[in-house]
Design a protein around this nucleic acid. Structure first.
Ligand code: FES
Ligand code: FES
Lengths: 147, 147
DNA sequence: TTTCATGTAACTAACAATGTTACATAACAG
DNA sequence: CTGTTATGTAACATTGTTAGTTACATGAAA
């Protein structure tokens, strides 16, 4: 199955931007992510529309974070990306007339909705600042390991 | 994303088989599911390999449930289907060297694993008998509504 | 021995995520 | 003003996965 990796991508990009002082260009981010600058613009565009980042053209242009790291949650990012479907498993028919299918759908949907709620809850508890801190911790550990 | 609907399919088929007395052919199931008999054979084949159903060829052949309805859980069916990926969202790189990506992956994976555990737990709590009972309830409600 | 059924390989179709090309537009340096 | 650097976006190509289809082999029972 081909999984949507945009959330992963924007997180990577945002952390990268958080480390930098000035704006970061799509080219740099694309190189870092191992992808194409147009893909970066397309994906980051969602975050711009949500007001999480800003972009400037021309010289010294690029992407900047508009919000406080501690105030941006994974859930916000997920929403900014258009709340893509979380699950790779689904019902055959969404609106079946047949009562058998309705029973099947109800059972599966119940479980999936519960899991999605949990996921969204976790997402809303994790901020960019948390990820940045986790990165700093890993970075420090790596340093001490090397010395 | 194109969602895997095989679990939904086999549940529908199994409930249909549970209602019937004798074996049910792939043709009948295919008609009922709105698909092709070969797809039915392919999908039900996983359940046969897991010992949940049996198939007979020739006259009066078809598919039959081998296990007790109350002893087959959604989780067993999910496992029989090869435990397909549950989530449509994933990491960009699964094994990144970069520490930033590692932080991102860790955060996402933590949330997803928790959600998957919950899903599997719910799946292991629901049996075919539960679904059959739910269907019977809906059927009765439908009847009384019509009268 | 004919008919009905599954078993399976191989191919096709449909679709979604990602990647690519091409060109328009805006900001700024000189 | 003009050239350079950047984003914005449309259009198209590539890739990968699920489901559907065709074709033929195999086995069981009338
Ligand atoms: S931070 Fe961008 S490649 Fe690691
Ligand atoms: S039970 Fe098969 S179509 Fe409703």
């Amino acid at each position: 199955m081909k999984r949507d990796s945009r959330l992963s991508s924007v997180l990577h990009a945002l952390l990268h931007m958080a480390e930098q002082d000035g704006p970061v260009t799509s080219d740099i981010l694309a190189q870092c992510l191992g992808t194409n600058p147009v893909v970066v613009r397309r994906t980051m565009g969602y975050l711009r529309d949500a007001g999480i980042v800003g972009s400037d053209r021309g010289h010294a242009g690029g992407w900047r974070i508009h919000a406080d790291l501690g105030s941006v949650t994974l859930r916000q990012l997920h929403e900014a990306l258009g709340e893509p479907a979380m699950f790779a498993i689904g019902n055959r028919n969404e609106m079946p007339e047949c009562l058998v299918e309705q029973s099947v759908n109800a059972a599966l949907e119940g479980a999936f909705e519960e899991a999605e709620s949990l996921l969204l809850k976790r997402f809303s508890e994790i901020t960019l600042a948390d990820l940045a801190a986790d990165f700093a911790r890993r970075h420090a550990a790596e340093r001490s390991r090397r010395s």
